[in-house]
């Protein structure tokens, strides 16, 4: 008889806890959520609704034409393809350079090298953009995607290196020692043991590098010509001289965000696992 009596308050307590937690979480994420909702709302409203007071969140008529306009009026697919090429190349190159670099720095405990790489990241991009612009001009690379790919490495390589340093530092040394006793050369130890174990870390590094590169705006606005624009630059160009067309702008921004958003949702589990790898060291 006693059991149900003691159990009921416990359940009530738990439900209350859960509601409290949910409320706290909602408060914390609300700025982000509201911002995102407003963007969706903007992209679906006609110009006349944008300036309305009181503001309208859900319009009576959805302006799907905003999306159509994005694809029709701009060379959207070209810019999308440019973005794919620049981000793809910059991310892949960063992995090829950054993963072995991170391994080397972690194993040799070369913190100074890691800090030098970090400084390259901390230096404001604008400070070296002009010299680089002149350099690319001299190399006759302007008008191609290469200047953007190369300069995006400034963003992607440090991310990859730093994440990989953290990851390799947490992988147990004994595994590599066991491999070297088993007859592996240092290169084989890296390729056959360290690298496969670091896969979650590589996924995290890949996704973060991808997001930062995809959203980069400053380098594109300076280095891109009319045909080599990436998506963020193209969105900026929706702000025309006479007026800001909020609807198409929001629609374009959403379309630009979408690939990264989908990828992040898809790989969310991996990211969390990768970022907390150091905290819980599983056997």
């Amino acid at each position: 008889m006693e059991r149900p009596l003691t159990k009921r308050p416990l359940i009530r307590r738990r439900t209350l806890d859960r509601i409290g937690l949910l409320f706290a979480a909602l408060v914390m994420v609300s700025p982000v959520v509201l911002f995102f909702l407003w963007m969706i709302s903007l992209s679906l409203k006609y110009e006349i609704d944008n300036g309305a007071y009181p503001p309208i969140l859900i319009p009576e008529n959805f302006a799907w034409s905003n999306y159509v306009q994005v694809f029709r009026e701009n060379n959207f697919f070209l810019y999308f393809w440019n973005s794919v090429l620049v981000t793809g190349a910059a991310t892949l190159l960063a992995l090829i350079i950054g993963v072995p670099a991170g391994y080397g720095i972690a194993r040799l405990k070369a913190e100074k090298a890691a800090i030098v790489i970090m400084i390259a990241r901390m230096t404001p991009g604008l400070s070296f953009l002009i010299p680089l612009f002149l350099l690319f001009q001299w190399l006759n690379l302007l008008g191609t995607l290469w200047p953007q790919i190369i300069i995006h490495l400034v963003v992607t390589v440090p991310i990859v290196v730093w994440i990989m340093i953290g990851y390799f530092e947490t992988t147990p040394m004994e595994l590599e020692e066991a491999a070297s006793i088993d007859g592996a050369t240092p290169w084989q130890v890296f390729r056959l043991v360290a690298l496969p174990i670091a896969k979650p870390g590589i996924v995290v590094a890949f996704i973060l590098a991808l997001i930062f590169s995809w959203n980069n705006f400053v380098f594109g606005i300076v280095l891109a010509s009319r045909t080599t624009r990436t998506l963020p630059v193209a969105v900026y160009n929706m702000l025309s001289f006479e007026q800001v067309s909020w609807g198409p702008l929001a629609a374009a921004a959403l379309i630009v965000t979408l690939p990264v958003l989908v990828l992040t949702l898809f790989a969310q589990k991996q990211i969390v696992a990768g970022l907390t790898a150091g905290a819980v060291k599983g056997g």
Binding site: L175, A178, S180, I197, K199
Partner: peptide, 20 residues
Amino acid sequence: LPARDRDIAMVFQNYALYPH
């Protein structure tokens, strides 16, 4: 000599099995 050329085998305290 490096470990790989010594022709020895070692069992570690935490086993050090390759997890993958």
